[in-house]
């Protein structure tokens, strides 16, 4: 998304530096924490709705609809969590002052993200084929809304990582200019942890 993209490029700033002293917590970190808080409220709204429907429904999931695929999704969850490793490595290296291999690490995380979304997409196609559509029931509607909304966030985060990977490849992510990566890492963690929470709420 444009938002994510813009955060990755804090260097097209005006010709003076807006900050003349170093705050205890860097701007980038404050900003990303604030952003994630807002996003969390979006999901809080969606999960709240979901729980209300779930609690007040006589049977959940409705009997005639297909079950959600738990084993595949567990595997997929592990895949997604695995993507945390490369990006964490990248950031750690950068913090230590090393700039080598960043593009590859970020690319790996992004690729895993793509894999995750692809598996999701395949599962969706299967579910829809079996009759679980958004219009068929509240069960389907809440499922697609929440999981779909999360998928959009994953895609946005993947784009962000790819932009960073490209920048890293061009040598424009350096130990001094790593705000973008700091932020992207927090965001990626948010997306992954959120997934685990959603999996717990929606699938189980």
């Amino acid at each position: 998304m444009t938002l994510a993209g813009s955060l990755a490029m804090p260097h097209r700033a005006p010709s003076f530096r807006p900050v003349e002293r170093t705050p205890p917590i860097p701007n980038a970190v404050v900003a990303i924490v604030v952003l994630v808080t807002g996003e969390a409220m979006l999901f809080a709204g969606l999960i709240g709705t979901y729980l209300i429907f779930r609690i007040s429904a006589p049977d959940w999931p409705p009997r005639d609809l297909p079950r959600l695929p738990i084993p595949v999704t567990v595997a997929n969850t592990l895949v997604l969590l695995a993507s945390l490793a490369p990006i964490t490595r990248a950031l750690r290296r950068l913090r230590r002052g090393e700039g080598a291999g960043l593009a590859r690490l970020l690319g790996t995380s992004a690729a895993i993200g793509v894999l995750f979304v692809a598996v999701q997409g395949a599962e969706w196609a299967r579910l829809i084929h079996h009759g679980l559509t958004a219009g068929s029931s509240l069960y389907g509607a809440t499922f697609y809304l929440i999981i779909g909304c999360h998928a959009v966030h994953v895609v946005a985060a993947v784009v962000w990582l790819l932009v960073l990977a490209a920048l890293a490849w061009l040598g424009r992510v350096t130990p001094e200019r790593r705000a973008g990566l700091e932020m992207a890492t927090v965001y990626w963690y948010f997306v992954c942890v959120l997934w685990v929470a959603l999996f717990g709420v929606v699938y189980l």
Binding site: P14, S15, F16, R17, V19, E20, T22, N27, R178, A179
Partner: peptide, 17 residues
């Protein structure tokens, strides 16, 4: 962080802008 920059720098940048 990247924003860390000294006072002197700023004045310089502001002047040449």
């Amino acid at each position: 962080m990247s924003e860390a920059i000294s006072h002197a720098d700023v004045r310089h940048l502001a002047a040449t802008h």
